[in-house]
Write a protein that binds this DNA or RNA. Structure first.
Length: 283
DNA sequence: ATCAGCACCTGTTGGC
DNA sequence: TGCCAACAGGTGCTGA
């Protein structure tokens, strides 16, 4: 699931719901993805009070008052659910994509829980000293955030056009150049910009770079406002779906008519994953 | 130095 | 209907 808009949705909600709560305990049923180890992790968070929640690209950072921070990556199927005593059973039904796969649980002293559901077990959690968060390799190597106010048109082009022979569909996914875009929003942004995913970055005109920059920002902001996109399994911290999927133009719409011109949407493998585009609207 | 390809998991979908 | 291959939103490692 989660790309920048979905992670931002989670971070915004967590900031409202768990700040100032004190962690009573941490339990895990998939210790393999808890670092440095689930024992060290549990010891490090026990008794700690939540100070704030931040986002670095697609990473979620929960800062604690004990000078430690929790870093979480949801990868493909991770969800973070906040359950109070009141709503605890609200979504409990069998085979539920969210509640059926709870792997890790934080329990706060007021009885609230923060539950990490993750069907495919790709997501991970790590505890480290707050002062070292930005030195964590996966965070340190991140490029500028796609929604950063510091990202200008010229910087955007400079970052993405390092190797002019690479195709635009690939460089948009490269977190070391630009952080936050995943497979859904690369297809959507390229559609809005009217550019085919397999174009080499060296062939893009000044106008096309301008359109791509505007489209990336627009699509991410729009999706974030709608609480992200739920294609089957993304849920916010209440277990609710996002609303961006209605606004999708091309992603996973191969074989269906383009919403703008009626041409059948195409799918093309780029690397190991699918890009979607309209051969008429995108040149 | 770069990059394709696979590995990490479990579930769903589509073709025969 | 049953089986099997392909596919699924992310990233890190290996080896050519």
């Amino acid at each position: 699931m989660p790309e920048l808009p979905e992670v931002q949705t989670v971070v915004t909600q967590l900031s409202k719901k768990i700040v100032d709560k004190r962690i009573d305990s941490f339990q895990s049923t998939w210790k393999k993805n808890v670092f440095p180890s689930s024992m060290v992790f549990a010891r490090g968070v026990r008794g700690a009070v939540i100070k704030g929640v931040r986002r670095f690209g697609k990473h979620i950072v929960i800062d604690l008052h004990n000078k430690r921070s929790i870093v979480i990556h949801l990868k493909m199927t991770g969800h973070l659910l906040v359950k109070t005593r009141k709503n605890k059973n609200a979504h409990a039904f069998t085979r539920d994509p969210v509640n059926g796969y709870i792997r890790h649980i934080f329990t706060f002293t007021d009885g609230t829980t923060l539950e990490f559901s993750d069907m495919r077990k790709f997501g991970w959690l790590r505890i480290l000293a707050t002062s070292t968060v930005e030195a964590l390799p996966s965070i340190q190597t991140l490029g500028i955030d796609a929604l950063s106010p510091q990202l200008s048109r010229s910087l955007f082009r400079e970052r993405l056009a390092i190797n002019t022979r690479q195709i635009v569909g690939s460089v948009l996914l490269d977190q070391e150049r630009l952080a936050g875009i995943g497979n859904i929003y690369r297809s959507e942004a390229l559609f809005l910009a009217g550019i085919r995913p397999m174009r080499r970055v060296g062939t893009l005109s000044k106008e096309e770079w301008q359109r791509l920059f505007v489209s990336v920002r627009k699509v991410l902001q729009h999706a974030a406002r709608l609480g992200g996109m739920s294609d089957g399994d993304f849920r916010d911290t209440d277990g609710l779906s996002g609303r961006f999927q209605r606004a999708i133009f091309v992603y996973r719409r191969n074989g269906l008519p383009c919403k703008k011109c009626g041409t059948i949407i195409q799918r093309k493998k780029i690397g190991q994953r699918s890009a979607f585009y309209c051969s008429r609207c995108q040149c």
